[in-house]
Design a protein around this nucleic acid. Structure first.
Lengths: 133, 133
DNA sequence: AATATAAATAATAATCGTTATTATTTTTGT
DNA sequence: ACAAAAATAATAACGATTATTATTTATATT
């Protein structure tokens, strides 16, 4: 069988993710880790991020456009995406289980989960941008 | 200003989308249109699909993995994704505006919309696949 | 501590989905 | 019929991600 072996790179990747709140992309993580391990390769970052997702230690966020993001905060929560600047923010909002129940009532298959992203304009952009007409 | 000109290819693309319920990818549409216009190019399909989305005549679906899908059904509704076979199904479920309201209460920016996808196993796969342990 | 193994790595190529470029064709207004 | 603008087919380029491979590293066993 395939056993998991320790790797300092993986530790560093996980530590990096746990240390930030900005939902970095694989490339963001790569740039950050490079300061400690200057010749880590991007492929290693991707492989370990995916591994951590499989292990359930990290979650991957995919919303419509741009590269995927990673989040080490395992407490279930929704995300907000600013359509203007692309920033992702955590919403301190517990996922609604009743959504799955509602959907189940009109679905012939079995519903296990849902993913919801909220879109709009973040506070920063609201002040910086000209008001919409 | 930039005016829109008729194109038979665009008409065919829209007709194709309106004629099917399976949420095809750009490539699916391409293969279908090729029967009528054997040397249409994939770029033309992408360009027109995006144009139709901008015009609000078609919606684009992006959920986590794989290529984007397109849907000519403009009545707002949610979608179900089978994690086993990848099929997309419409859920005859009106989007919940209260979701936006709930999220707005704990968001400093302005929330305009949300996108929700439900994941699970479709009826077909439930019967075909060994029951999960 | 030395050795054998299996897994992880860095470097790099390859893939996938999509967008950009450009010379040519088609639409449309005069 | 003609000119101007837009759309096209063909193709190159792109960004994000995965696959390949020779080398290095971690770990279990001697």
């Amino acid at each position: 069988m395939k056993t998991l072996k320790y790797s300092r790179q993986r530790e560093s990747i996980k530590a990096c993710l746990m240390g930030r709140r900005d939902h970095p992309t694989a490339d963001d993580v790569y740039l950050s880790i490079r300061q400690e391990y200057p010749n880590i390769s991007l492929g290693t970052v991707y492989r370990n991020l995916n591994l951590l997702v499989e292990l359930g230690e990290v979650q991957k966020l995919s919303f419509g456009y741009g590269p995927d993001r990673f989040d080490a905060d395992l407490i279930p929560h929704y995300h907000f995406v600013c359509k203007n600047c692309g920033t992702i923010a955590d919403l301190p909002l517990k996922p609604f289980p009743e959504l799955n129940r509602e959907a189940q009532q009109c679905c012939e298959g079995r519903i296990d989960s849902h993913s919801t992203y909220f879109y709009g304009m973040c506070r920063n952009c609201m002040f910086r941008e000209p008001p919409q007409d």
